[in-house]
Design a binder for these strands. Structure first.
Lengths: 216, 216
DNA sequence: TCGAAGTTTCAGAAATCACTGAAACCGAAA
DNA sequence: TTTCGGTTTCAGTGATTTCTGAAACTTCGA
């Protein structure tokens, strides 16, 4: 972590130390999550700090370049977990992190679904399509192409799982979502009749329309 | 993806192509998840293939080294999403992926909680401890150290969120877990009275014992 | 006790990812 | 129009992760 040499008046050194450790730990998690380390660190810093900070504050405290700080801050704003604020008589922009951790969690889930689940689903549909036509032709011709059959069964099971994941996450994080409670009730609703460990009822989505389903 | 030049008798080329695309897509996801690309690809290959494969099969199809293939397979077995099998009169070991996608999902969640959430939680407790003593001393001395106060409130909120996440995931994936339904009912139980978006009731975990809480 | 099948380890190479530092760019207030 | 705060881009560099190829090691059957 940064040396953080100047002892800000009013703040103890042990506090700064604890903050630095937190920033580092959060950065670690960022790596595991596919967020860049710095972006996570910037977020951690803003979250743990009382006052809003400007770009230069972030640069100084984290010892990173202006470009990096600027882009990371922008990305965080895009994610919806950091907001811009201003101070009277100051043209500079200041940044503060969302303080409600549940709102934060929802924003993060929303963004990750958009970036990871949606494209994956589109991909799976597309891959299934690759063998869709041959399979149909073969079936019409009378022969049952066994390998294609099981290939489709597997893909369908995966698509099914992904859709469920997507729905739950969207319900949890969606604009009209009421968070965990909503997601929980969705999980128990007959809409998704899943969750039986060894039940062999994989293929449900059969010929869903890939084009209209996935926005990205 | 690998060229996959030899046309396995009985399997069409479009099938191989689709499989390769699937392997590539799954590998992509692996990167995003902090699993290495190869490990994810090996898993994808085993999942999408009818017959169990041996180490050499994997090496050939994916064009990777023996060491890499061996270690990736071992890791997958450790994760519990791939099992070893044998063929009569053959000393070689063969590998096959868990076919039930829900069991797969549970295994993955279990492993990721162990590797990511548990250590994070331990970290958060430790960081909180760093300022715990100074804060108490100051409080006893009569002064109210405001920055320490809000520092703790933030950390507590985060610890709280992490614990909830941990519990839900463990319920979903635990040995006695019945999957999504169990997780859903946990979410709605009064045990975790969370999920109200803007409710300002963060600090609940106050002085939980860090040592006994986290195994890792 | 040998040898074949299989696993693990590791140093170095390759690939990937993140970051810097500088420059170009933009918009708006003075 | 200039200046200021700020953003974006990018070539080059550094750091980290992943992979290879080979060797050492383990296990077990003959």
């Amino acid at each position: 972590m940064a040396p953080a040499p100047k002892d800000t008046p009013g703040e103890s050194n042990t506090l700064l130390e604890a903050q630095d450790r937190f920033v580092a730990a959060w950065g670690q998690m960022g790596v595991v999550w596919g967020i860049s380390r710095t972006m996570a660190e910037v977020h951690a810093l803003l979250y743990i700090t009382d006052e809003p900070l400007c770009t230069d504050d972030v640069m100084d405290r984290l010892q990173i370049s202006r470009g990096n700080a600027s882009m990371s801050l922008r990305a965080l704003v895009d994610w919806g977990i950091v907001t811009r604020t201003h101070k009277r008589g100051d043209r500079k922009e200041y940044f503060r992190a969302e303080q409600d951790v549940w709102a934060m969690a929802r924003a993060i889930v929303r963004e990750r679904v958009k970036r990871e689940v949606d494209p994956l689903l589109a991909n799976l549909y597309e891959i299934k399509d690759l063998t869709q036509r041959p399979a149909k032709a073969a079936r019409r011709a009378g022969s049952l192409p066994d390998p294609l059959e099981s290939h489709h069964r597997r893909l369908d099971a995966l698509i099914d799982l992904t859709i469920t994941l997507q729905r739950v996450a969207q319900t949890f994080s969606g604009p009209a979502g009421r968070g965990m409670a909503a997601a929980a009730s969705l999980l128990q609703s007959p809409l998704l009749r899943r969750g039986r460990p060894a039940a062999d009822d994989a293929a449900v989505v059969t010929d869903a329309d890939p084009a209209t389903e996935v926005p990205q």
